[in-house]
Design a protein around this nucleic acid. Structure first.
Lengths: 342, 342
DNA sequence: CAGACTCCCGTAAACGTTTACAAGATGAGA
DNA sequence: TCTCATCTTGTAAACGTTTACGGGAGTCTG
């Protein structure tokens, strides 16, 4: 019995320390510590010993035995984008309630680091992952579908891929924005989009063209600009457009772009919404912090995050579950940037 | 040899699987996999076997053996505050470069969950933690100073506490802002602060009063408002102040408050900076996204984050190091919100 | 009072690695 | 050819838990 080292090198107590001090076996100590059956006397002795030495179980050793880490990963392109902050908050709430913790990864949006991350899942350092890839390549699909740990994807995924998936319908969302702007009597509606080789970029482009057509408007390529999904890019794209022509309304593919575009419009001396109506997308707090506040198409980011987290927890509990696909409907939130006060 | 299960229940290969397939002992397999000495023939066989079964080492088991998890935690009050996003980016860069990963915790700023988090460090689920507490209670100090794993604190800490610590000098920062506003001829400088029982709130209050005194200005309590360190609170606080009196300059305790105050000023029909000059603090991207862009006192959040991460890594490498205290100097970034263009 | 049943407890194995140690093989030098 | 050093390999222990299993003591029943 005293062959076992009672105190490890760093002096931290283990279950051996507690057991020895309490005068019981490590099995009994472990049982008491986990609230399993034991006699009152044993319980008392073990509790006292554990308290005396300040025993705290080692999470690593426990994980090795239980094959769970109680960690959930959330992989995201850019922590600075408020839409991901909102998702993260929703995910964190669900994850914390289940007694687990959240690990956040910033991928920078490039395919290599995202697939590397997915492969690292094989190390089993987390119990599962929620990923919201902005581009979906074959490499992604391959890495996701034969991932050794459960993965839930937020965003569009090819239909055939049997992976839990939470999506929204951004084409309909774009249609709502166009509908709203048209109803305000706007005739020259511009689009500032992100890269077309991204899933959201492509969807917004398609949705925009379809919506304009549905309203009998012709597509004017001068009123379409493409940049990154970021503030500075949005501002630059709007400046490029304004140097050519001035729209009477602008739809932006996310709120960061919208805030950048707002900046460009105001610098150009245009009034928002009187001269140019502005609608963003994602309905983040950023849009509420602008002046004027920015109308935005909500894609339910918090709802999607929470739902993804719940799907993941259910899959961890029962890996045999069939792959599910949930959808969150978009809705338009109208604020000062797109509606002239009467 | 075949007593050992070669394939675990979930079918994932272990070092035993690889060793058996290669016809060598697990020790040899492990050595090859870690690049230690082995004969060319053994190396070849093990590599081939590992590739064939797609072996990936189990991070948990490795951690149990090595007593390291290669995870670093960053505990923060509110992930939505852009200042923490900037710190996080800087920390992430340093941490990733060392081959580790970052775990982010949102504490909600309350003492109980922060101390609980610190106690959880005893579980050894991370190698160390960076924490930026907004309030520092005796409970914090106790939990931090006898933490079983290395902790680095970003923010003020009582001098006697022997913990690695990265701080800035926000009093000097406030003085810079006041100096700048006074130099612009502003006479009635207001303050919108966060709670006085927080460390930054108290420092900004003291700094503001000292700076006004240094410029021979009297303190007008009507020009001081207190709320939370957030957008909505800042806006509400500014509205309260404006209902009483109109300052000719406003210093805000962080950029979220400043953006809220800007909103209130613009809604009230005041021009920024002509009627009211505005200076924020933290110099986050949020201030750059506003219109007009907001002048802000930089407290070097990225620098502090990076430095904290480096201190932590050094301490992990050598726990015997004496506690260090680093300081990052503030500087003022002047933008359109505080300087009337000539 | 014997047998069956319960309840506690301790021994030992297991989770998947890394690594100290010793033993075997090989080659060089005397 | 013998010895010694070097290189490679395998055995086994260790990291700190949880838990299957079996034994022993006690209680209850017939």
């Amino acid at each position: 019995m005293d062959r076992k080292r009672l105190q490890p090198a760093d002096g931290r107590p283990t279950v051996h320390t507690v057991a020895a001090l309490a005068g019981v076996s490590i099995a009994s100590a472990s049982r008491v510590l986990n609230g399993l059956g034991a006699s009152p006397e044993t319980v008392r002795k073990v509790r006292a010993a554990a308290a005396e030495v300040g025993y705290v179980p080692n999470a690593i050793a426990r994980s090795l035995q239980s094959q769970r880490t109680d960690l959930i990963a959330f992989a995201v392109e850019d922590i600075g984008n408020p839409v991901y902050v909102e998702m993260m908050r929703a995910i964190e709430a669900v994850v914390a309630e289940s007694g687990r913790q959240l690990v956040v990864h910033a991928t920078g949006g490039n395919v290599a680091s995202e697939t590397a991350l997915l492969r690292r899942l094989a190390h089993r350092y987390v119990d599962g992952m929620i990923i919201s890839p902005i581009r979906v390549t074959d490499a992604h699909v391959a890495a996701i579908s034969d991932s050794p740990a459960p993965v839930v994807v937020i965003g569009q995924l090819p239909d055939a891929v049997p992976v839990d998936n939470v999506r929204t319908d951004s084409r309909t969302g774009v249609a709502m924005a166009v509908e709203h702007l048209a109803a305000q009597g706007r005739k020259r509606i511009g689009l500032i989009n992100g890269p077309l080789d991204t899933v959201p970029g492509a969807a917004r482009d398609a949705g925009f063209r379809a919506a304009l057509a549905a309203h009998g408007m012709t597509i004017d390529e001068d009123l379409i600009e493409i940049g990154e999904f970021q503030y500075a890019a949005g501002r630059a794209a709007a400046e490029r457009m304004l140097s050519r022509t001035v729209p009477d309304a602008l739809f932006c593919a996310n709120d960061l772009i919208a805030v950048g575009a707002l900046h460009a419009l105001l610098v150009a001396g245009l009034r928002v919404p009187q001269d140019v109506a502005l609608v963003g997308m994602d309905d983040t707090e950023l849009g509420r912090m602008s002046f004027p506040q920015i109308s935005s198409v909500s894609l339910g980011s918090a709802a999607r995050g929470g739902m993804a987290a719940r799907l993941l927890l259910e899959r961890i509990k029962d890996p045999a579950l069939p792959a599910r696909r949930e959808q969150v409907a978009p809705h338009l939130v109208i604020r000062a940037s797109s509606e002239v006060a009467r």
